[in-house]
Write a protein that binds this DNA or RNA. Structure first.
Lengths: 191, 191
DNA sequence: ACAGAAATCAACACGGCGTTTATTAACAGA
DNA sequence: TCTGTTAATAAACGCCGTGTTGATTTCTGT
């Protein structure tokens, strides 16, 4: 979404995103109509169509923003960090702190009634993160390696989703630490 | 869904499920209208409403059937199997074989454009399976244990989804074996 | 202050929704 | 094979959200 310097545009888009998030806490996206959303925003319906094609178009622009932020906060992990350096912990911690800041929207996008498409995208980002880390200590590749990376990434996102769904009873650092421990020592060591 | 002995009813419902699955291969559920589905089935629109409230009602009845089958095939693992007995392998293998038989529908429900609600339910079933297994060898419980069980379950479902999305290039037994190995030895032993 | 653009309002045709009616066709059980 | 029951059909209904339009007003950046 190309950004603008017109205050009215920023205001309208922010309003729409806020109210969409609010409505999504009580009902599924598919039940939210453009008319209803505009009433909630006290915005003319024609104004909505000036910015977005439909509710899903708006939703995807929100998703893209979250995803971009997630990617950005993980980026240092990819570019920086010498071979074997400890970046899993800080990387996960940064990611979970970022998600915690946007918890309302993330819960709605990743948990019950969320968007599979989006969950898959986040999971793919996480898998590339995992792949990058393991490449630093072992350059072997193979058909089955992809499944293992997927296993780890999906496990992390699964934990993330449970944590979000329970309204984050632990601080993000603790969850990040748990996942780092799992990645380093495996689940068996913890059970 | 209460079953009937009237051939016409069985025929209609089967037709609707078939065509729904067919349509879902090309477009998202939210884009499928009752009108369109009925045209595809060559069925009167009023007939649809005699059986289901809307497209999602139909979808959920399909999901319930799949879930019931999945649960049923996993059930022996819960009830049977003495303490410490090797049931992880056979259990996973049975589950993956069952899912492979219903691959078309499962891919559409679990992968891109799928239903988060349904994925979550399957993941919960898998978590209870995992919890049951680990209880046999270790009865400790704790706040963080739930996260670990979730990690394992989500990892398994993640692998399942990747496998389905790639049109199952490996036999179900091989995937089940891989996951059993991960559960027993951890990912680190394999990397 | 001014030109440009965004937001508003009202109205439009379109199409899917969910329901109803009368009618026809298929069914299960005797 | 007959019979009462019930599912499926066809046609029509009002309703509502959609996406677009044109004219008008309000706000914005410079």
């Amino acid at each position: 979404m190309e950004q603008t310097d017109d205050r009215r545009v920023r205001k309208t888009r922010r309003l729409l995103r806020e109210q969409l998030a609010r409505l999504m806490e009580h009902k599924s996206v598919r039940e939210i109509t453009v008319t209803e959303l505009c009433r909630a925003c006290d915005i003319n319906r024609g104004t909505f169509y000036r910015h977005y094609a439909d509710v899903y178009d708006l939703l995807h622009s929100v998703e893209e923003e979250i995803r971009r932020g997630f990617q950005q906060v993980m980026d240092p992990v990819f570019s920086g960090g010498k071979l074997g350096e400890q970046v899993i912990g800080p990387g996960l911690q940064a990611a979970f702190c970022y998600l915690a800041e946007n918890a309302d929207m993330c819960r709605v996008l990743l948990c019950r009634g969320g968007d599979m498409e989006f969950v898959q995208q986040v999971e793919n980002l996480m898998r590339e993160f995992v792949r990058e880390q393991y490449r630093k200590v072992n350059r072997r590749e193979g058909e089955m390696y992809d499944y293992i990376f997927t296993y780890i990434a999906a496990g992390c996102i699964g934990v993330l989703r449970q944590w979000l769904e329970q309204d984050m009873p632990q601080p993000p650092q603790q969850i990040a630490a748990l996942l780092e421990q799992i990645m380093r020592e495996g689940v068996l060591a913890l059970l």
